[in-house]
């Protein structure tokens, strides 16, 4: 027999953790939130900064993907204009379920200071939004906190039950 045989009934118990499937799946989902590189304006720069050396988003398992098909979370970082609105809908539709949306900054939340003819007054007119981050532009810390909140939200969701698709209409 191998020298390092372990007696599971005596030496500190079984190397088995009992948990629910919900918890395992949500643990996986929440700790590898891949975001879409979707820097629209100023907030996109802060989003880059949160991914870069100082703030280091990798710690949260969040890395940026260039394709919506590989992304779990859409961070709308910047002003959404009327000309661009159709593309955000298209990108959102291309993402696979389950998917989440973070609206980053005042412009994406409500139109912000750009109360003009060319700006969509809130990205939630086009896609359903899970989390609104205040600020113009929000600091990288805000985005990190937002992602942590989103993780918390994901952990509280049912994982296996057929998810109700989130649609605005």
């Amino acid at each position: 027999m191998a020298q390092h045989q372990v007696n599971y009934t005596q030496d500190g118990g079984l190397p088995v953790a009992l948990t629910t499937i919900d918890k395992v799946v949500n643990w996986g989902r929440s700790n590898s939130l891949w975001a879409l590189t979707y820097g629209l304006a100023c907030c996109g720069i802060e989003m880059m900064a949160s991914g870069a050396s100082r703030y280091d988003f990798d710690r949260f398992g969040t890395i940026f993907r260039a394709s919506p098909r590989q992304a779990d979370v859409l961070i709308i970082a910047g002003t959404l204009t009327k000309k661009h609105a159709e593309f955000i809908k298209r990108l959102y539709d291309q993402m696979t379920e389950p998917r989440w949306v973070i609206s980053m900054g005042s412009c994406a939340n409500t139109g912000g200071m750009f109360n003009t003819y060319a700006t969509v007054q809130g990205a939630d007119r086009i896609v359903p939004v899970d989390l609104y981050l205040p600020g113009c532009a929000p600091r990288p810390e805000t985005l990190q906190y937002g992602v942590m909140l989103l993780q918390k939200k994901i952990r509280s969701e049912k994982a296996i039950k057929a998810q109700k698709p989130k649609r605005l209409l």
């Binding site: 009327k82 609105a85 159709e86 109360n115 003009t116 003819y117 060319a118 007119r125 086009i126």
Partner: peptide, 15 residues
């Protein structure tokens, strides 16, 4: 400044 009727519904009408 806030756009006319067409501008106000542009993205909704289109999408």
């Amino acid at each position: 400044l806030h756009g006319d009727e067409f501008a106000a519904w542009y993205e909704v009408d289109k999408i």
